[in-house]
Design a protein around this nucleic acid. Sequence first.
DNA 1: GCTGCCGGGCC
DNA 2: GGCCCGGCAGC
Length: 129
Amino acid sequence: MNSVVFECTWRGCGHNTNTCSSIEAHIRNTHLGPKKEGDSDHEEEFYYTEREVMAPAPPPTLSHRDMCRPPHEDPEYQRQLVGSYSSPSSPGRRPRSDNKKCRKVYGMDQRDLWCTQCKWKKACTRFGD
DNA sequence: GCTGCCGGGCC
DNA sequence: GGCCCGGCAGC
Ligand SMILES: [Zn+2]
């Protein structure tokens, strides 16, 4: 019995659901916000991937790379979406990664172990984002 | 309440 | 330039 998994590709999320509507609801509620007037038609669809999952293991077919993936993940499509309409990633819609930075790793009581930027309350340079 | 960090201050 | 903090957004 194979099923389909919808995985959220928002930074540091990775939430999985089993239906298309549920992942879109997750993305809209958790990441994108309530809703916007005149927003891109289906903006949610850019933030998740749909993949089929086999029960035991993936088949050993090495003939083809995965062809026919959804229209997402196309560089042109992405540039078009980001360029014409500064959707997220503009000052105002800032995501938040869940990986720890110097402050949380070492704690306030060991500030001398933080990287310089963290000491100055700037963007961390030791742990990527 | 805490974390990450932009903006802005002081030297 | 180095150094620090207010204040805010995102949890
Ligand atoms: Zn750091």
